[in-house]
Amino acid sequence: MANVQSLDPSASPLDYYGWELRRQREAHGLRQGQLGEIIFCTGSLIGQIETTKKVPTRDFSERLDAALGTDGVFSRLVGLVLRSQLPTWFQPYAEMEARATYISTYQAQLVYGLLQTEEYARALLSVDHPGRTDEFVAARLERQRILHSDHPPALWVVLSEAALLQEVGGHEVMRGQLGRLLDCLDKPWVQIQVLPFSTGQHTGLMGSFTLLRFDDDPDLFYVESYDQGHMTANPQVIKERSVGYARLQATALCPEASAELIARVMEERYGCQP
């Protein structure tokens, strides 16, 4: 890891963040411990972020801006930092997802990333990334900010019943995650349909996929494997997958019946009455 003498602010968003934090702190005549006391963290954490050993969170960045009077500099920069923590192959999709006006996704096994709770995401990401779980979780939560923006995308999720039954992180985590899905009933721009096992064979058996629509750009189809993602704007692929998605929507339970199934699984399988 870099030290304060060798940190190159042009190397990455994280390096720039650390370099700018040190510059602002010293400009205010503060030691690491003093700044830590002001924003309610340790001086050690300040030092680790300055030298890129730790990735800053949004909450940390907002407290920095308030303490140093930096007019939102760190709050704006942290978005770039967190996106840079996503796997390189996933970053192009995350950028397009953030620009989409309409997102349609079919999820065969897991809850879609934009709807995952922090605990659910942590349990998932800790399996393959035990040394970088905090960074990956923070990056995933950062992606979800688009749903809370002034102009959120319309999000339509068709979720296999398998995603409700696949236990991730234990009963408590699953109760929280299914509760999050039920909370979406209050969000008019989010629609969730569950595709029950009783459907039998269907057009989504090949696996999860996502369609992105934009105001001024061609539609995109996205699918991923274990260690890479694939995006295409090929009109024939978009047509075929759009028809396939419409068939999934027509076959799945309606949103109201889907909510009833989610609530029933939440109570009967995970021991909680929603």
Rank of each mutant, 00 (worst) to 15 (best):
Ser6Leu: 03
Ser10Asp: 14
Ala11Glu: 14
Leu14His: 10
Gln24Ser: 05
Leu30Ser: 06
Leu30Asp: 00
Gly33Trp: 02
Gly36Asn: 01
Ile39Val: 13
Phe40Pro: 01
Phe40Val: 03
Leu45Trp: 04
Leu45Pro: 01
Ile46Gly: 04
Phe60Trp: 09
Glu62Arg: 15
Glu62Tyr: 07
Leu64Phe: 10
Leu64Ala: 02
Ala66Met: 12
Ala67Met: 12
Asp71Thr: 00
Gly72Met: 11
Val73Lys: 15
Ser75Gly: 11
Arg76Ala: 11
Arg76Gly: 11
Gln91Val: 13
Thr101Tyr: 01
Gly113Ala: 14
Gln116Pro: 05
Ala123Phe: 02
Pro130Glu: 08
Gly131His: 14
Asp134Gly: 05
Ile146Gln: 04
Pro152Ala: 08
Ala154Val: 12
Ala154Thr: 13
Val158Phe: 07
Leu159Ser: 08
Leu159Lys: 07
Ala162Ser: 15
Ala163Thr: 03
Leu165Val: 07
Glu167Leu: 07
Gly169Gln: 02
Glu172Phe: 06
Arg175Phe: 03
Gly176Gln: 10
Gly179Val: 01
Gly179Leu: 08
Gly179Met: 10
Cys184Thr: 12
Lys187Met: 00
Gln193Asn: 14
Gly200Ala: 08
Met206Phe: 13
Met206Gln: 11
Gly207Phe: 07
Phe214Glu: 09
Asp216Asn: 15
Glu224Phe: 01
Ser225Gln: 14
Tyr226Gln: 13
Asp227Cys: 02
Gly229Glu: 03
Ala233Cys: 03
Asn234Ala: 10
Pro235Glu: 08
Gln236Ile: 01
Ile238Met: 03
Arg241Cys: 06
Tyr245Met: 06
Ala246Thr: 08
Ala246Gly: 13
Gln249Pro: 01
Pro255Thr: 00
Ala263Glu: 11
Val265Asn: 02
